[in-house]
C-alpha cells in the first residue's frame, strides 16, 4: 500500500533530480577570458588548506587535557563546597592531622646541614634512624668540647701536637728519625667536609670496635693512606705515611678523651 506524502517529502524527492535549467545556465557561462590573479590563487588555496586542516578531529591529547581541566574545576568546586561547612571542614582537618601524626617521619641527621657518613653508607642503619622520633635528633657540637686522641702509640713514635683550636685538633707522630709516620685529626661537623682525591682511589669500608663506620682511602701510586670515621660527635682522620693498616685500626680503636689519658 502506498503512503501519502506531504509537501516537504515531495520537495525532497523532487530535488533529488537536479535543476537542469540552472545547470545548463551555469555550464554556458563563458570564463575563457578570466585569469585568476596569482595573489588570489595563493590566498584561496591557503584558505582551503586552513579550513580543511581546521576540520581535523580533535586529538586524544586535547580531549584528555579538557577532561582533566573539567575534572580539576569540578574537584575545586567540590572542595570549596565541602570546606564551606564548618563541621565538614573540622572533620577534614582532623583527618589530615591524624594522618600526619601517623605517617610523618623525622630524618636523623646533622641539623647544621652536614651529612652523617654512617647514614649514607649503611641503608639499614639509615632506615632505622629514619623511623626515629623528634627526640632522637642530635645536635653536634659546634666546637670541640672534648679533645680526643689515640691512647695507643706504637713504640718508637713521638707525639707532636700541631694545632688545637675550637674546631680542629691535629697531632703529628714522628719516628725517632724525625720522619713523619702518621697524622691524627679531630674536627667538628661544622668545620666543613673532608675531601679526598678519588681518582684511582681504593675505598674500603669497615666497622671500628665502637661500631663507627670507617673508610680506608688510598690513591694508587701514593704512599699515604687515609682512615676516616666519625663517632656521632666528631670526624676523625688518620693519615698514615709509614704505618700499616692494622696499626691504623689499632690506633683508631684507641681514641679516647685526652683528659682520660692523663695528658
Amino acid at each position: 500500500m502506498m503512503n501519502k506524502l506531504n509537501l516537504e517529502q515531495f520537495v525532497r524527492i523532487a530535488l533529488q533530480t537536479p535543476d537542469m535549467k540552472e545547470y545548463e545556465e551555469y555550464m554556458a557561462i563563458d570564463a575563457s577570458s578570466v585569469v585568476i590573479p596569482a595573489h588570489v590563487d595563493r590566498k584561496i588555496k591557503r584558505n582551503i588548506r586552513r579550513k580543511i586542516e581546521g576540520k581535523k578531529p580533535i586529538s586524544a591529547k586535547k580531549i584528555t587535557a579538557r577532561i582533566l581541566l573539567v575534572a580539576l574545576i569540578a574537584m575545586s568546586i567540590m572542595f570549596v563546597t565541602i570546606m564551606a561547612y564548618g563541621e565538614t571542614r573540622e572533620i577534614v582537618l582532623r583527618a589530615f592531622v591524624e594522618w600526619k601524626d601517623s605517617f610523618i617521619s623525622v630524618r636523623y641527621g646533622d641539623v647544621n646541614g652536614g651529612i652523617v657518613p654512617s647514614l649514607d653508607k649503611n641503608k639499614e642503619d639509615a632506615t632505622e634512624k629514619d623511623s626515629s622520633t623528634q627526640e632522637d635528633i642530635k645536635e653536634y657540637p659546634k666546637t670541640i668540647e672534648e679533645y680526643r686522641s689515640p691512647s695507643y702509640v706504637p713504640s718508637g713514635i713521638i707525639e707532636v701536637p700541631l694545632i688545637s683550636n675550637q674546631t680542629m685538633q691535629i697531632i703529628e707522630y714522628y719516628t725517632t728519625d724525625e720522619e713523619l709516620a702518621y697524622v691524627f685529626e679531630q674536627q667538628t661537623w661544622t668545620d666543613g667536609n673532608k675531601y679526598f682525591d678519588n681518582e684511582d682511589a681504593m675505598i674500603e669500608d669497615f666497622v671500628l670496635g665502637d661500631g663507627s663506620f670507617a673508610s680506608f682511602v688510598k690513591n694508587n701510586g701514593k704512599k699515604d693512606i687515609h682512615l676516616v670515621w666519625n663517632d656521632g660527635e666528631y670526624i676523625y682522620v688518620l693519615t698514615s705515611y709509614l704505618i700499616s693498616k692494622e696499626e691504623m685500626i689499632n690506633i683508631a680503636n684507641s681514641v679516647m678523651a685526652t683528659s682520660d689519658r692523663g695528658v
Binding site: 502506498m2 503512503n3 501519502k4 506524502l5 506531504n6 509537501l7 515531495f10 520537495v11 524527492i13 523532487a14 530535488l15 533530480t17 535543476d19
Partner: peptide
C-alpha cells in the same frame, strides 16, 4: 497537504 507518490507529481513539484 498530502498526496500519493507518483513521478508525475514529483515532476510537477520539480
Amino acid at each position: 497537504d498530502e498526496w500519493f507518490y507518483s513521478e508525475e507529481n514529483a515532476a510537477a513539484i520539480r
